[in-house]
Amino acid sequence: MLWYEQSFGVDYLTVYNHRNGEQAAREVAQMLKWLRLPQQAKVLDLCCGMGRHSLNLAALGFDVTGLDLSEALLKEARASDTFSQVHWIHGDMRCIPSTSLTFDAVVNLFTSFGYFEQDEENRKVLLEMDRVLKPRTKWIIDYLNPDVVVSGLVPLSERKSNGLMIHETRLVEGGMVKKKIAVYEEESAPRHYIEKVKLYTLADFQRMLRGTSLVIDQVFGDYTGSTYVTSVSPRMILVGNKL
C-alpha cells in the first residue's frame, strides 16, 4: 500500500485535529479576496480532506465539489455536511473523475501537492487542474516553503492528543521531506505511518507549468497576504489564472 493510501485514515483526524473550522474560515475569507469569484461560482476543493474549506465555501453560497482519495476523510466530511451542500467525490488528484464538469476555481490546500516521487506524476495534478478549469478562471496551490522547511526541520517531537501519544520524526531524503509518525494507544502496539512531500521551489513550479494554460499571478507567504520571501515565509501560496 502506498503511503498516501494508508496515512489519511482515522488516526489522521487525531494527528491533525489542531486544524479546525475557524481557521479554515479565516483562510477562505482571504482566498476569496484573491480569487474574486462571482456568486454561485463552481469551486473544486482538490484534496479536500475532512472538508473544512469546502464547507466554508459552500456556506458562502458557492457550488462546491470536494475530491479526496481517502474514504475515511470523506466520511468525516459528509458527516459534517448536515445540509448536503457539497458534492463529495472519491478520486485521485492525478485523474479527476469528471469528464463534463468544469470549474470557475480550483484550490489545492494544506500542502496537498508533491505527494509523488516522480515529477511527471506531480505534474499530472497541474494538467488535471488545467483540464477542469474554464478559460479565464482562477486557481490556488497552498504549498510549503521548502527553504524554511529544510532550515527549520525538527528531527523529533512527541505530543499527546485525544488520549493518544504521537511521535513524529522528520528528515529530508531524495528531494522529499519525510515525516514518520507513530501513534501509541495504551498497551496496543504502535501504529506507524509515513508522509512524504517533494520539495519544489517557485522555479520548479514555473517549470512544471510550462505547456499548460496555467499562469502564476501572485505568490504569498501566508494567509495574511504577506509577500513570499524564501528565507522566512511559512508558506508558498501560488495564486494564478487559466488563460
Rank of each mutant, 00 (worst) to 15 (best):
M1S: 14
L2C: 04
L2N: 14
Y4V: 08
Y12G: 01
L13S: 05
T14H: 13
T14R: 09
V15D: 08
N17I: 02
N20L: 04
N20V: 11
E22F: 12
Q23G: 12
A25S: 15
V28T: 10
V28H: 07
Q30R: 15
M31H: 02
Q39S: 14
H53Y: 10
S54P: 09
N56P: 00
L57A: 07
L57R: 06
L57P: 07
L60Q: 15
V64D: 05
T65C: 10
G66E: 05
L69S: 14
S70I: 07
L74G: 02
S80N: 15
F83Q: 15
F83N: 14
S84L: 12
V86Q: 03
V86M: 04
H87I: 10
I89H: 00
I89W: 02
D92A: 08
M93L: 08
R94M: 07
C95E: 14
S98Q: 12
S98D: 13
S100Y: 08
L101W: 04
T102P: 00
N108G: 04
N108R: 03
N108V: 06
F110A: 11
F110P: 00
F116A: 07
E117C: 02
D119T: 05
N122K: 05
R123H: 05
K124E: 13
L126N: 05
L126M: 11
E128P: 00
R131S: 06
V132W: 01
V132P: 00
R136T: 10
T137G: 01
K138R: 15
I141A: 05
L144Y: 04
L144N: 09
P146F: 07
V149H: 05
S151K: 15
L153K: 11
P155I: 06
K160V: 14
N162R: 13
M165Q: 14
E168G: 02
R170L: 01
R170W: 09
L171C: 13
L171Q: 15
E173R: 13
G174Y: 08
M176K: 13
K178A: 07
K179L: 05
A182I: 00
V183L: 03
Y184P: 00
Y184N: 06
E186N: 14
S188I: 02
A189L: 14
P190I: 11
R191S: 11
R191L: 06
E195Y: 13
E195P: 01
T201D: 12
R210H: 11
R210Y: 05
T212H: 05
T212P: 02
S213A: 14
D222T: 01
Y223L: 07
G225T: 07
V229P: 00
V229H: 13
T230A: 15
